[in-house]
Every structure is written in structure tokens, then in C-alpha cells.
Design a protein around this nucleic acid. Structure first.
Lengths: 196, 196
DNA sequence: TGTACATCAGTGAACGCGCGTTCACTGATGTAC
DNA sequence: TGTACATCAGTGAACGCGCGTTCACTGATGTAC
């Protein structure tokens, strides 16, 4: 493959992915339609399949980008924060804000499941786990004597609790809260979780 | 309408609903297929539409049954428990167990969304809110001076946190935990939430 | 320099399938007179 | 008691649409000799 071919191929792949992201942002998982995405990207249907084996592969790529954006947001938000409790609060708020500002990307991240028998590729699992590292670090400061295994489990529990509050809120289940009240509840939740 | 007609109609409605529940239990939201459900219930496709306006109405009925089952499980589990913290722990474990033992009913409860512009009927919202009452009662004992509004919000937050832990665990995101470890984490979460 | 061939991105019509929903019709039961 | 009509549950073929995926083909670019 020549350099020109490679460059062209990479551009196509990128443009298809961008169109897929735009589709998800516009209408969520349901709005993902290979024909539309191909047209939006400026290619034919067949081209999409030259670069992504199937729809699931394309969605995996979209979710990978979403995870990357969350990671970036978290890294920026916690920059320079020393206090572990403050860091955890900022992380939770960052997660909440991201979900709020990117609802459909976020729901797609958690709403897309591969069909049974098609396991999630390891690199994608690793991307997920990497995000938990942001939570694990301050938790370790707060619990210096905790062994690694317990810390991993506890990290997951804390993430799950925060994630649950974000999910229930964004779905508008039960009562919808104002943004301010929701942020207060998030702070409450984090404070309770880290109490000693 | 004669009594005979009414009885026949009700039986059909019930049998269709039972077939729908069985379908969800067998394959989740994806497995809901009017043709299959009609056949399973022993009727034709048209009959389903005589009793449920559309697929969404049928799924709403399924979810209503699921909510009823959770409600029953919670009522039984908390019977005779006086200590509010103990009650909250039992409620969380009951919720976890229900989700574990009825995975597809549970994921359908939270995975089914009506199309935009079709609001969730009020009776169904009320069914959801009713469940929160189980949590609100012990929370009120623990926080007797909390005003009603704050209590409602706090109840929702506590539910959301527990719900999140159940969701992340059942989906098998990140690492899967053994049942025992998961129950320990659930107790930890509830304990932290009610700390004063 | 020119000719024949290989390679690869990209094309888009066609395949195949699933599935929600509708509607004209049937037959049983009940009612009016 | 009998006849005509009304009502309603149930039927299932047909409509209509969407959509993932495939594959034989095109044309541009590069390579061998």
C-alpha cells in the first residue's frame, strides 16, 4: 500500500467515524443507519464496510471516542487538585456535566451491547478500566492501608453509585431535578462515600 | 357487553400479557415480537391489537407487572423490621436479588423508552414513585427533622446510588464480582449513605 | 517510453429478512319484534 | 317460536417500510518488463 493510499484510507475511516458520531449526537443509538452515515460522510454504503466490519464495530469506535473525551475532561478537571475529597467531587461533577452535555453519546456508551457470543474486545474494556484509575488514585490517598483488590472493588462501587445518580437523573425518571439541586445531591453522595 | 364476553376478553388480555412476560424473560426487549407472542398465547396477531393499542402499550403492561413484583418482594422483605438501617439494607439486597433473578425483566424495565412525544402515562409514573416510598419511610426515621421535599430528593439519590451498583454489576461492566462480594459492597454503600 | 497487468478504494443495486400494524372478513352469541 | 339484525372477539393475509450486508464491477494509481 502506498503512502497516498494509506492516507486516503485513513481519511475515509476518519470521516465515516465523524459522521457516525454526528449521527449518535443527533439521535442516539436508534439514529445509527449505515446508509445515512455513508451519505453524510460523502461515501457509498460499501465503503463503510471497507473500514468497519459491521455496525457494531463502528459503534465500538464511537464509544471509544466518547470514552476518550470523558478521560480528557477528567484529566483537565482534576489538574492541580491535591485534596482527594475535592478531586473526587470534581470527578463526579465532571462526569455529570459530560453526561448532561453529551446525553446521546453517553446513553449510547451504556446502551450499546454486542450480541451474545461477541465479546467486548479487550482494548475497549481497558479503556473503561482506565477511567476508573482517576477515582482509584484519590481513594488510595484516603485509604492508604487498603489492599489493591479491595481498592479496585471499592472504586467500582463508588463509580457505580455516581453513575446511577447520573443515569436516573438524565433519564428523567421520577422527578426531574434542577441542575443545582442535582449537583448538591452529587456532592452529598461523594461526601458520604468517602466518610471514615 | 355480556358477562361471558367480558370474561373471554379479560382472559385473552391476560394470556397475551403472560406470553409477553414470558418472551421478555426469555430474551429481553429484543425478543418482544407480536407475532410470536400472539402464537404463544394461542391467538392471532390481530387479537393482540384488540387488547393493546400497540407494542409500547404491551411493554408498559409488562413493566407494570415487574414493578408489582418488586413491590411485593420489598414488602415481604421488610415485614417486621424495625431498625431503619436494617430495613434499608434489606431493601437494597432485595432489589439486587430481584435484578439478579429476573435480569431480563429488570433490564426491560429500565431499557424500554417510549418514543419522543409519547409521555409515560401517569399511572405508570405513580407505580415507580410508590416504590420509593419503601425507602423514604426508614430514611424519615433516620432524619426526622428533614422537610418533605429534601426527603423526596434524598430518597431518590439513595435509590439511584443503589440502582447504579446493581446496573453496573449485572451488565458485567469492568470486573464481575462474586455474589458475596457484591452483597458486601451493597451493605457498604447503604451504610455510608445513612451515616450521620 | 510504452504496454500489460496488479492492486486497491470506492460504488450502489440487489438480497434477504424482520416486523409492526391494518382491515375486510368470519362466526358465535345476544337481542328485537 | 322464528326471523332478521346487531354486536363483538377473533382471524390472518397483506401492506409498508426499514435496514444491515454483500458482491460484481469501475477507475485510478502503481509496478514489471
Amino acid at each position: 500500500m502506498t503512502a497516498l493510499q494509506k492516507a486516503k484510507s485513513e481519511e475515509t475511516q476518519r470521516r465515516v467515524l465523524e459522521a457516525a458520531i454526528a449521527a449518535v449526537e443527533a439521535g442516539g443509538l436508534e439514529a445509527v443507519n449505515i446508509r445515512k452515515i455513508a451519505a453524510e460522510a460523502g461515501y457509498s454504503v460499501g465503503s463503510v464496510y471497507k473500514h468497519y466490519t459491521d455496525q457494531d464495530a463502528l459503534l465500538l469506535a464511537v464509544n471509544s471516542v466518547t470514552l476518550g473525551r470523558i478521560k480528557t475532561a477528567m484529566a483537565e478537571a482534576t489538574q492541580g487538585i491535591e485534596d482527594p475529597v475535592a478531586a473526587l467531587k470534581v470527578l463526579a461533577q465532571t462526569y455529570l456535566n459530560f453526561a448532561n452535555n453529551n446525553r446521546l453519546l453517553w446513553t449510547t456508551l451504556f446502551g450499546h451491547f454486542l450480541p451474545e457470543g461477541k465479546p467486548v474486545p479487550d482494548w475497549h474494556i481497558q479503556e473503561n478500566i482506565a477511567l476508573l484509575g482517576f477515582i482509584a488514585a484519590p481513594l488510595k490517598v484516603l485509604n492508604p492501608d487498603m489492599n489493591e483488590e479491595t481498592l479496585t472493588i471499592r472504586t467500582r462501587t463508588c463509580f457505580a453509585a455516581v453513575h446511577g445518580l447520573v443515569a436516573i437523573s438524565l433519564e428523567g425518571r421520577f422527578v426531574s431535578l434542577s441542575g443545582e439541586t442535582l449537583e448538591q445531591e452529587m456532592d452529598f453522595l461523594v461526601e458520604q462515600l468517602v466518610r471514615n
